[in-house]
Design a protein around this nucleic acid. Structure first.
Lengths: 197, 197
DNA sequence: GCAGTAGGTTACTCGAAGTAAGTTACGAGC
DNA sequence: GCTCGTAACTTACTTCGAGTAACCTACTGC
């Protein structure tokens, strides 16, 4: 099997087993066996167990970025922008419970580079939110804009975990909840009182 | 040395080394050596490496609960309650950067029981917030109250991480930022328009 | 002064990460 | 239609750290 294809397969299997049993409880031999290949192949392609984990996170991160970018492309104002971004995020989580569990639970593992990779995902999001906020309210204190972006990301992430425990809550409702809490605080900062829906 | 005292010392040392190097990169031999005792003593008192980690988290959790309870004891209304609770949390983080790093980064490790212990801390907080919200706005949708509590906890946690990267931001300012974003959204749910400061 | 126990140690086992060295499959060039 | 090179793969190790069995020691109450 060609390298690229084999790597993708390894990531898929690893993601599944990591999510199932946890990073620590999973052995490379087990992953290798389920892939149908021997352990040194994993090391050939990913260097280490940690490298394999990072590969999983990285793939999810890329996918999330692409979906979010597509979703917000046509947003007209800050409210719609925020709403569409949040919705894209919650939908991604909803479709990828496995990878999401991996990101939140396993990846925060002591492994420093995996930590960085996860922080990279958050950075993607805070940057995006910070940028849109700054572009719509140019006179805002940059530090406060940054804090705001962090708050939104934290709130969203936490609500995503909560959503998993609450089957009746889907992406749309989760988005509403976050917007309900957060939007009034932002609207006050906008130049004109924002004629929101 | 008596058992209780030795255990406390072990927790202190373990917390420090875990926070420094990460859970995975730390060996029990190393902790034992730095405590000045042999490895089986750690197993005698904590059962496993995971047990030691859980001990660290549990101690921090207890301390946080006590400090928060003391801080909010005299709160007059929902706004003051929230503000004092947030402030107590950020002050705790500020004083315990080490344990906080441990909680956020290491404890989320694949180890399921450590995961539960950390979730317990969040549960403490969401319960508290949910309870106060329900008591002040009895007619609120319970699901929405729950979502709100999760949002506040997520936002707060994330902002605490951010605060560590931003030395100029202290507990007071962090509290302000969170309140600025969150309070307007809550105030709308209250029976009367809340004459906030 | 002896018994029981709290607090401690040395010296192992065992499992899993990581590696060295070698093997097979297979397309390109003659 | 053979052979050279390389991509894909394996077997058989080493090493390191979690966890344990078995043994030691000093103090306290009687």
């Amino acid at each position: 099997m060609p390298k690229a294809q084999r790597m993708a397969q390894m990531l898929t299997v690893a993601e599944e087993i990591f999510a199932e049993q946890g990073y620590l409880a999973t052995s490379m031999d087990e992953i290798a066996e389920r892939v149908g290949v021997s352990k040194p192949m994993l090391y050939e392609y990913f260097g280490s167990k940690e490298g394999l984990l990072i590969g999983c996170i990285h793939r999810a991160r890329t996918e999330l970025r692409e979906k979010t970018a597509a979703a917000i492309a046509g947003a007209a104002g800050p409210e719609e922008f925020l709403r569409l971004g949040l919705l894209a995020f919650f939908e991604f989580i909803d479709e990828h419970r496995r990878s999401w569990a991996l990101l939140r639970q396993e990846a925060a593992v002591a492994v420093p580079s995996a930590q960085e990779e996860v922080e990279g995902i958050r950075q993607q999001q805070t940057d995006m939110i910070g940028a849109v906020l700054a572009s719509f309210t140019p006179e805002i204190d940059p530090l406060e804009a940054e804090a705001f972006a962090e708050i939104v990301v934290g709130a969203t992430e936490r609500l995503a975990v909560w959503m998993e425990r609450r089957p009746s809550v889907g992406p749309a409702l989760a988005t509403d909840y976050v917007m309900n809490v957060i939007w009034p605080g932002v609207a006050r900062k906008l130049p004109e009182p924002a004629p929101h829906a």
